Amino acid sequence: MYNILVVDDREVFRRKLKRMPYWEKCNGKFRISGEASNGLEALELLRKQKIDLVLTDIRMPLVDGISLLKQIKQENLCSCVILLSEYAKFSYAKEGILNGAFDYIVKPIDNTKVEDSFERAYTFLSSISETAPSSVRYIDALAEYILSGNLDDTMVYARHVDDELEKDTQSREARAICMNDLLKKLEESLLSIKPYLKKYFMMKDLFHIDLQERTNETEAFTFAEWISRIFKELKPFIPKTDNRMVREMCELALEQPEEKHSLAGLANTYFVNQKYLGSLFKQEMKVSFSQYLTFLKMRRAEILLLDKCLKIYEIAEVLGYEDVEYFSRIFKNTTGWSPSSYRENLLRK
């Protein structure tokens, strides 16, 4: 069981936090073993008792949350700090992350936010050891930021990992090996949340650095550069919309690109007008639903074409196309290659 210290200048918030259902159903993973109304009180408690996780507000009297975080890291008082704030400004998150915060939660908090953050914190606390590189702790959070679609947040985390790698490794070669280990963990973390991604990518190419190929390069490459590439590749496959219906439509298509999804059928499912649903989808995603489906099917076809045992007509059938010539025509319009030429080009590489 991990001990939590809650730091907030409002007693009513601390009481509300302690009453949240998560603490009852977390199966003894955590317990709130201390409270403080400001950073100064928190530091006194941290120096006296073992605390595994600090949950602290940013804006407080005497010693604020960021100053508390810096002091905790300087004195090595706690392994995991989660920041709270009523302000959803990136500058707050950025400053916290750069100073070693594990996560950043925007108030008002609810049980879902608490459960999500603390389950990841539990995974981190369970995995760290004296010999584990400190950069490992950021991978689950990095996966969350990639899936949020926010490049700024993602790159702040990635650059922080680069800083940790500089401390933990002595040579360029050792750093590259550590990067591959972290990329493997990042792949696992992303797939645990969005398993459909493996339908659209050769994951070993996207999440693995060819060390032999990179050895001859004169300039050192960074973890952040690789994460930027991953972010750009994944972005079209991570729907960014606040509309529940549109998000569910995207996820359905992403998870089942082989199925024949129709706007009419989905309109019946949601009890809405078909024309309205089509307009809503295009407004949110900037393409029509049929264009989105075609994009996903053609990307899935690219992956299936890597399997030399599959005939082109079989790939067409798998993706719901009864006419292989029609499928080939759409594929060429999308990629610029016929399916057979695309496959031949891949095999030559």
Rank of each mutant, 00 (worst) to 15 (best):
D52H: 15
M245C: 13
S279L: 13
I146E: 08
L55A: 13
M179Q: 14
K167S: 07
T241N: 08
E24T: 12
E259A: 15
A220E: 15
Q212T: 02
L277D: 09
A158I: 01
D210S: 03
L346C: 02
K198V: 01
N150W: 00
A42Y: 11
I109C: 07
A121Q: 14
K349H: 11
W23Y: 02
K194W: 02
V324E: 12
T218W: 04
Y157M: 04
K311N: 01
R247N: 13
K311R: 03
P133C: 01
K199R: 05
L190Y: 04
N268M: 12
G34C: 00
E251N: 15
L17D: 06
E144Q: 05
I58F: 07
P61I: 11
S85P: 15
F295N: 13
K107R: 01
V6Y: 12
A174Q: 13
E95K: 12
E248F: 07
V318P: 00
K282G: 06
E217C: 00
Y145E: 09
L43G: 10
L182M: 14
F271R: 14
A132H: 00
N150D: 03
R229D: 02
G39V: 09
I66K: 07
L84M: 13
R175K: 13
R172I: 09
L53P: 04
L191M: 12
E213S: 02
M202A: 11
V81I: 09
I4K: 06
N180T: 13
N150F: 00
L319H: 05
F102D: 01
S129K: 09
I139P: 09
A224D: 10
E44H: 15
D162A: 12
L211T: 10
K48A: 07
P133F: 05
T334M: 06
D205L: 11
L280G: 08
L186K: 05
Y196M: 13
P257C: 05
A143T: 06
N345I: 04
A36W: 05
Q291L: 08
L5S: 14
R329W: 02
P133L: 04
N76R: 07
T335K: 07
E187K: 15
Y196Q: 05
K73A: 12
G100E: 03
N333A: 13
A174C: 03
L197Q: 03
F30I: 03
I66L: 15
L69M: 12
K240N: 09
D52A: 04
P339Q: 09
E115V: 00
